[in-house]
Design a protein around this nucleic acid. Structure first.
Lengths: 330, 330
DNA sequence: TCAAAAGTGTTATCCTTACACCCATGT
DNA sequence: ACATGGGTGTAAGGATAACACTTTTGA
């Protein structure tokens, strides 16, 4: 038996516990919401997680199972994000290396009704990533302060690291003049983590440039690596809406163009050009008219649309209009 | 403690063994090669897999570790693909549900030298997916035979399932007149599996339309679900080369435009337009001239190029030219 | 001279993006 | 009247994809 076969001798493996973490997203008039679990006392919020159980035929079935059982929500779209498995993910006090493996999922639900269960609630995902909401430019100024901190980090770089820090920061946050790249959520979070602008970095004992006090206070943190998982989910969703009709999993049965646009804008964290958005969606054949109109628009009544569900069979690889990444200047 | 917290009571979990499966790819003049492990006797080939061990700090570190230790290959690009965890992935004879979780990775290496180890070797990935090589159209006719089988599957559909089968097949394999979508490797494999045109389906005991004898013989199978993992890897790589400069991980230090084009074509399984490919790569600033030329081209000598490594810092989100998916007709 | 591959020029077409403008309703 | 949002027209600019053609080598 060759060494490659070691995996079959399970005696050599350490104890592994597997849980399924879920970024469960819905859209409200106030923006994208994510399901969070509040823990005892003043501990940070957490993403809901459930165990992988023997009777689950597949991983996704396991996830759907415990989420629906627990929340009653019917998961529309479900997608595996990533498997996280740092050995020190939960540094155990007893020094034993019991590895905790976490498989992250993103799921979309339509219902926003609050749960009876007291420790589960919806929270805007921008509570945890305020710098990702660029719909009104840098309105609260978080971004400006981040850029200042990054500028300091670059300025104080040792000579050989300077170029690297410079390019890493412009890759994640862009040069002024570039179009804001809304997809690089994870890259930005990881840069902030590494610089030490995020409390998790200090909690994990990483060697950071920034002092613990500099950790951004405007943003709320999450338990263990859940903010990283959430960042992964936002990134994936922001990418996906461009080439798959997933936004409609978050829309009511009938909606107007502007409602659809606002939802996309809320997810992407950027503003879109109204006439072009309308035409793009129209030309793709993603929607059809219901015949009725909505009068409570505040202006001229708007035609009510419905998602053309058969498009999923005709052309599943189609999405909703966002400025293409290509339009970024070099 | 709420029910969401069940994951922490690890007593309720079943035994889980985790291994890291790897799709290790290199490029040769004859096409894309993948590392396979031959087992005892006439058993099907397998992807190499290694166990997740306690001392590995991260999952990717674990993978790099055992691959480099075992093969000596230096993994350039490594990316997690997907976590597979069907309960019946290895149906155990003793009826106990020991779940085997497998985390798939794709890795690119430059070296093609064969390994001394006798049970490891390189194989063209088109041995396992002959229908994915459309560089010369449907030269061996595999595709034609598949289309015939699918046509039968559609024709014999019960009335209510017919539309569904029709659209699923055109989504995966396209209508005649459409551009071949090289990215849908997994979708095609899964459709063939479901129809029963692939031996794994019968081995797994799935209820299939096609009889066991119809399972495509021109294609070689792999152990357990390894062909699905390979399909996932090919899909991901074919997608990735379009917006990340990963092809260069497979190129020698100096190469000509045509060599680069042939490599991309081999990976994507389609032919490209030479003048346009050249200009696209040129304009993206992905390569620079070395000054020297290659004379053994069979024609006019070609300028030798090198990959501009600094592009990874300047603009990591850039790739090599392939016909855009958008150019597909609706 | 011819085959084979390296390169260059050019154009039709489509898509994106932006700008300008009119329409219908409530206050 | 005017604010607010709904909705249409159009044109500049850029990228794609196809076609035609010249250049340089070896046999």
């Amino acid at each position: 038996m060759s060494r490659v076969d070691r995996s079959r001798t399970s005696a050599s493996q350490d104890a592994v516990t597997v849980d399924l973490s879920a970024v469960i997203v819905t859209a409200s008039p106030d923006g994208p919401l994510v399901l969070v679990r509040s823990q005892d006392g003043a501990a940070p919020l957490a993403l809901p997680a459930g165990p992988l159980e023997p009777q689950h035929r597949t991983l996704e079935a396991g996830l759907r199972n415990w989420v629906e059982e627990l929340t009653g929500y019917n998961l529309g779209y479900v997608e595996q994000l990533y498997s996280f498995g740092d050995a020190n993910r939960h540094a155990s006090a007893r020094g034993q290396t019991s590895r905790s493996l976490s498989i992250g999922y993103i799921a979309l639900v339509r219902e926003t009704r609050p749960k009876q269960s007291s420790d589960i609630s919806w929270a805007s995902w921008y509570r945890f990533f305020p710098w990702e909401d660029m719909r009104s430019g840098d309105e609260p100024g978080v971004m400006t302060r981040i850029r200042e901190s990054i500028a300091g980090w670059i300025a104080e770089a040792p000579h050989d690291a300077r170029q690297d820090r410079e390019s890493r920061s412009t890759n994640a946050f862009g040069k002024s003049g570039d179009r804001w790249n809304e997809e690089l959520v994870l890259e930005r979070y990881e840069l902030l983590y590494e610089i030490g602008l995020v409390p998790e970095a200090h909690r994990d004992g990483a060697a950071c440039w920034a002092p613990r006090e500099a950790a951004i206070v405007e943003a709320e943190s999450l338990q263990s690596d859940h903010r990283r998982i959430l960042a992964t989910g936002i990134s994936r969703l922001r990418g996906k809406i461009k080439y798959r009709p997933v936004v409609f999993e978050l829309m009511p049965p009938r909606f107007t163009f502007l409602q659809l646009q606002r939802t996309v804008e809320a997810l992407a964290g950027i503003e879109l050009h109204k006439p072009n958005f309308r035409r793009l969606v129209e030309n793709q054949g993603l929607v059809e008219e219901t015949g009725s109109v909505s009068t409570n628009t505040g202006g001229r009544p708007a035609r009510l649309l419905r998602f053309r569900r058969d498009i999923l069979r005709e052309r599943p690889t189609i999405g909703v209009g966002l400025p293409s990444a290509r339009s970024q200047k070099g």
